[in-house]
Design a binder for these strands. Structure first.
Lengths: 385, 385
DNA sequence: CTGTTAGCGCCTTCAC
DNA sequence: GTGAAGGCGCTAACAG
């Protein structure tokens, strides 16, 4: 930056052609330009270390070759949020493949309007929003402005709103049906409330499975957390206490967030309820967080990197001006059964008959001793400190 | 974007002033402009929903208010790399505080030259590079071009190169001294080789501690991994096998990478060596990864979010044209002692005398049974599958 | 105090 | 096939 910038016109001059010609060559629009001329331009560019000025190009073309991602909070990156990290990895990889860069836009702007201004001010060609609140004002504003936007892991009712999401209703259904099949009849649900579309949807799916099994949906015990706060031990403690004192106490918990699910699974034994002996626990996302929990958590999986990749594809198509048959790309969810779920102590034989994986059951019991010991060790540790 | 853009001149016209005046007002350069005029401009801007065009401004000012981050790989985000995520969280938060956006530049460009072109092509005002190879060609090229750059978690020999890093030599020293004090005399070291500056430095610190204790540095068994690949089970398996068959076999391992340390700690019992009974393990970074390992790993901590924040501060100062006393900001490292280290089975009494925390020792043995059980459970699981 | 003017560096529609 | 000219939207000297 010390030496003044080499411009396209400098290259053109050096190659003995006009800026127009140089521009054509350098942008692969070299229809009917003699190979010899092309070479001259290319050589000159290399010799002078020519690098196009991105802002100038953006100004002239109206395209930045950049896509934005709105972060709910900077902490979206920190340890916990494997969910976010996995999606982001998919987004970045795909964006790079398409020769696009990714601009991180933290939602920590003082007002959503200033964020809106930046986004629509030509910083990016389009934007991805991830798991935002249904009450979010930025999303409808962008839609209204017809700015290219793809919502990831949430949707709005607006039909113009493109989104890439999972079939959360089915995800909830899978979780609950698994428990019902194991013989559970009283289930507690922890979820973010209706402020997130997937919260509402997963709960609906859970309800469906329960009703389908001939149980009353009123038997579901539902508790919401405040999604505006990061997962807090305080909340977990309260939730566990709430669970423990329910009467009759449920024999299973479905927690719609993976981090909180892990925290709950770790807190339950402290409150005297072991997992899965006393309580079965089902989490969502099924990343390493569920897998490394003690015991490993049965979890509803969504294909996170694929979601990220699909989001980029849809967004680029939208930027290109393409049209879409449907406004939402939906991925299926599946259930990864691990060691945190089993038949309740006094299982109704109806459900128990549906269990298939005998091999798994054996394995589970063989491990049980180790898991119990470990659980006790944890507790000692807690009290000892 | 459907309706054509509102320009500054439109606002000026609506307010009955010239573009210059409008520009002044909108950019808070309103020295000596009547409050009444200012209000007219502000009103007009709001009424017309004026949003400045970022690329145009960047072209005119030569400033983008954007900083770039070069990612080694898109996977930098995925679960594993807590190290990276923590630093990034610090970077984003600080950048947002300074009203800057962050552009992600994946190093997966086909050539470093094209990355170089993008960076210096006016996409960003400055760039942060994180933990890159000493052989990286991009870094010296940026320095040579005098482009604002701050290296995070690595450094080059070039004095013009600004960097924010930890005192890795002391970190290595702390790790090794801890082991020596516990009575270990034979130590194995796993590190990335000299391709990363911190690899070289940590090893040097380890050597210093060993020599200081009157031991021969030749007793250190050192093995490198290929940093160009993500942590692989294959490598871990080989490393553990290498360790197991060393003669005489070391009683401790220092692994300079947290993920690999965890993998090693998990693989050792599979090979018949329990942690910490047979082998003590020390890792680096001390994030949740070490903390949640079984047993929790003693680990050398670095203040990751602070590093990210400092990197942004330094970069912005550099962009502003500031000068610096020193070219490197260095944070201290500290040791978090957890359950993966203890006296070797036949500890030399020399070292043992240095142990202080009697309380801890007691606690550790109280937990030992639980940990051992858990270790066995893991092994069963491995064989069972 | 405010308006006029001239770029910033590139692309692109036109003539030649 | 190539060149000339205008404009993208904003800022910043320089007049007035």
């Amino acid at each position: 930056m010390a030496t003044s910038r080499v411009r396209l016109s400098d290259v053109a001059k050096a190659a003995g052609v006009s800026p127009t010609t140089a521009s054509f060559v350098l942008n692969d629009r070299c229809e009917s330009i003699p190979a010899e001329t092309q070479q001259r331009v290319l050589d000159a560019a290399r010799r002078l270390h020519y690098r196009p000025h991105i802002a100038a190009r953006a100004l002239a073309t109206g395209r930045t070759r950049r896509i934005g991602i709105v972060l709910n909070q900077p902490e979206s990156f920190s340890t916990n949020d494997t969910y976010f990290a996995e999606i982001l990895a998919g987004i970045i990889r795909r964006a790079t493949e398409h020769d696009r860069n990714v601009l991180l836009l933290s939602a920590h702007y003082t007002t959503w309007r200033s964020l809106f201004a930046d986004i629509t001010g030509g910083a990016v060609d389009g934007v991805l929003q991830i798991s935002r609140f249904v009450s979010d004002e930025l999303t409808p504003a962008l839609i209204e402005a017809e700015f290219p936007l793809v919502c990831v892991s949430f949707r709005t009712d607006d039909e113009r709103c493109l989104s890439v999401d999972c079939d959360n209703e089915s995800g909830g259904y899978l979780a609950a049906r698994h428990l019902v099949e194991l013989g559970h009849t009283r289930i507690a649900v922890l979820y973010p409330g209706d402020v997130l579309s997937w919260g509402r949807e997963r709960l609906a799916g859970i309800r469906r499975a329960v009703v389908e099994a001939g149980l009353s949906p009123d038997g579901l015990q539902v508790r919401a957390w405040d999604e505006k706060r990061l997962p807090e031990p305080t909340w977990v403690r309260d939730a566990v206490e709430w669970f423990r004192t329910l009467d009759p106490r449920p024999t299973a918990v479905i927690c719609c967030d993976e981090i909180r699910a892990r925290m709950v699974a770790e807190m339950l034994p402290v409150a005297g309820l072991s997992v899965p002996e006393d309580v079965s626990v089902v989490s969502f996302n099924s990343t390493e967080i569920s897998d490394r929990c003690i015991p490993p958590l049965t979890s509803v999986r969504q294909p996170l990197p694929e979601i990220g990749r699909a989001a980029v594809d849809v967004l680029l198509e939208r930027i290109r001006g393409g049209t879409f048959d449907a406004s939402v790309v939906q991925f299926p969810m599946s259930l990864d059964i691990r060691q945190s779920t089993r038949r309740p102590r006094c299982a109704a034989s109806t459900g128990a008959s549906l269990i298939k994986a005998t091999g798994k059951t054996r394995m589970r019991s063989r491990e049980a001793s180790g898991i119990r010991s470990r659980t006790r060790a944890r507790k000692d540790q807690e009290h000892g400190e």
